[in-house]
Design a protein around this nucleic acid. Structure first.
Lengths: 148, 148
DNA sequence: TATTGTTATACTCTATAACTATA
DNA sequence: TATAGTTATAGAGTATAACAATA
């Protein structure tokens, strides 16, 4: 009977809320939302179109228009018209956006890193491996992504 | 030099987004938002006033009025006037709210449990312990909570 | 016809500031 | 005066549906 105690699941969600709250607070200190931070993060090594971006963020394309509008208005991203398809554009992070993204990432990493440093080196390594495996299983087991 | 590779932090955030996306999808299937689910969760074993509820959710009290309004309109919670203080009220989850909360919690737990079952029993136990410790360190190191 | 993206509309969520009523 | 809570207002984020322009 796979009727396991939910303490692991509860713990994982508790940790998720802690991490997200911290990300949210740090982002807000720079007048950004979590979604905007994610947007900039995705653009770090990609120059996707609106549809691809929507897929990455799991949002409707119409939701992206406003999201990108606001980011563009702040000079964080640019719409680059596609030369081959006059309907399409790709979204590119600006130097300013990249910088802001980096500042936030560093602050968040420093803070969360301090958190995980209650664990000794060996345990941190082990935790990283375990978390990595669960993430991989999520990609395989889909559901959230498989739905579309 | 504490300049650690950020792979653990990245992994933790990646996992957080996966979990939140799943919670969000399952909640949406029941026409609830993540915040509403958290609200019901907090009320599972408490009957707090608006201010206490705001503190738990890390929201302004004014944000709670609407939140509770919408939950009350759907019959998920009730405002119980305090007999001793005519300004105050406590928020109580209804039987319907409790039931909905349970249904969602079970669906989420089942799904995430399936995810963590890529790990063998021993690793799941270990993961639970490590996650628990990091959560505890968050409570100690504050920052998110210490700010207020 | 199909695809890329935007616009119109409506709702939830959130904060700040001002307010009401009670303590 | 101080506290519990609401209201007014504004803005971000999101979805659905309809639309425009291009393929």
């Amino acid at each position: 009977m796979p009727k396991p105690d939910p303490s692991l699941v509860d713990g994982l969600f508790q940790l998720s809320f802690v991490l997200l709250a911290r990300l949210s607070r740090i982002a807000a200190e720079h007048d950004l939302s979590v979604v905007q931070v994610r947007l900039l993060g995705i653009l770090r090594d990609r120059e996707p179109g609106m549809l691809e971006l929507a897929r990455h963020l799991e949002l409707e394309k119409s939701s992206l228009s406003g999201l990108v509008d606001r980011a563009e208005k702040r000079g964080l991203v640019e719409r680059i018209p596609s030369p081959s398809d006059r309907r399409a554009a790709t979204i590119r992070v600006t130097a300013q956006g990249r910088k802001l993204s980096r500042v936030i990432a560093e602050a968040v990493t420093a803070e969360v890193d301090a958190l995980v440093h209650v664990l000794p080196e060996a345990d941190r390594k082990r935790l990283a491996v375990l978390v990595e495996r669960v993430c991989a299983s999520s990609a395989t087991l889909g559901a959230a992504s498989r739905t579309r």
